[in-house]
Computed example of a mutant assay.
Amino acid sequence: MLICPICRSSLTSVDNGVVCSSNHRFDRARQGYLNLLPVQHKNSRDPGDNQAMVEARRRFLDAGHYAPLATRLAQLAAERSPGRWLDIGCGEGYYTAQVAQALPDADGYALDISREAVKRACKRAPQLEWLVASMARVPLADASCDLLASVFSPLDWSEARRLLAPGGGLLRMGPTREHLWELRGLLYDEIRDYDDEKHLSLIPPGMQLVHSETLTFELQLDSAQARADLLAMTPHGWRASAERRAAVIDATLRSRVAIRYDWIERDR
């Protein structure tokens, strides 16, 4: 199942780690994850979300503000009954843990390029195999997954197709054009529009959209900490001006949450 990120041969378990036939060895961290991100595959010393961003996301999600999103994601995953699944871009593991709970008999994996995120994610579902790895060079074998989950995460579509077994699918969860519309109106003079179906043009041959749905609800944030955390866990935390961000943090926020779920299946 696991493959070496350097030579792409199979990895086998050894004492406190894994090793391939070329003797590339990777130790398991004390938190339980495997770091399968070689230095030559990094674009910075510590790629991905930093500690402050991870902690902001953890506080916000653990407070339940996006709980309906996680519940529906887990329901959709359970409907597919995969034998093996991977959360590709798992972050600090909030959504991953919900999916794991819905799939108690499945073989689960989760990866993110951020070591800070995976360190915290491990604690949420120790039964999973947690990996620090590149989403563009996923260290899993071809056609090894029945379900891929991609939640608010960039995606390498060619890797997704490579990883999926015939008949398996990608469960993608991402924002629609209306997501946090009111918040964006407070932060910017002009709200940048985008096409909710733009990502569908990226679907590679051999995969097709089978199901799509949208979940919408109103979010109310009375806590200044929650408002600050929401900004910190989104691109708005660095795109918007400091003055506009401060104004959002200072007042109760009501804004739409509008999320699209897609099931994109690989041909059998």
Rank of each mutant, 00 (worst) to 15 (best):
L2N: 07
L2D: 01
I3T: 04
C4K: 03
C7N: 09
L11F: 03
L11T: 09
S13K: 05
D15H: 11
C20Q: 03
H24Q: 13
F26K: 06
F26Q: 12
R28P: 11
A29M: 02
R30C: 10
Q31C: 06
N35S: 08
D46R: 13
M53H: 04
V54M: 07
A56L: 10
A56I: 09
R57T: 08
R57C: 07
R59K: 08
F60N: 10
L61N: 13
G64N: 12
Y66I: 07
A67H: 09
T71Q: 15
R72C: 15
R72A: 15
L73A: 15
Q75A: 15
A78P: 14
A78V: 07
A78C: 15
E79T: 14
R80V: 14
S81Y: 07
P82C: 12
P82K: 00
P82W: 00
G83E: 15
W85E: 13
G91H: 04
G91Y: 12
E92S: 15
G93K: 10
T96H: 02
A100Y: 09
A102H: 09
D107G: 03
D107V: 11
L111I: 06
E116R: 01
A117I: 01
K119E: 11
R120V: 06
A121Q: 02
A121N: 07
C122G: 11
C122K: 04
P126C: 10
Q127H: 10
E129G: 06
W130T: 06
V132T: 03
M135Y: 00
L140M: 11
L140F: 00
A141K: 05
A141P: 10
A143I: 01
A149C: 08
S150E: 00
V151D: 05
W157F: 01
S158T: 03
R161M: 02
R161H: 07
R162H: 00
L163I: 00
L164N: 07
P166G: 01
P166K: 03
G168A: 06
P175M: 01
H179T: 01
H179S: 07
L180H: 09
W181T: 07
E182T: 04
R184W: 07
G185P: 01
G185H: 08
L186E: 11
L186M: 09
L187D: 04
Y188L: 05
Y194W: 01
Y194P: 02
L200A: 01
I203T: 11
I203C: 00
M207T: 14
Q208E: 10
Q208S: 12
H211N: 14
T214A: 06
T214I: 10
L215S: 12
L215V: 12
T216D: 15
F217Y: 13
Q220Y: 02
D222T: 08
R227G: 11
R227T: 11
A232I: 06
P235T: 00
H236V: 08
H236T: 05
S241N: 06
S241Y: 01
R244I: 03
R245Y: 02
V248S: 07
R254G: 12
I259N: 11
Y261L: 15
D262M: 11
W263M: 12
I264S: 02
I264A: 05
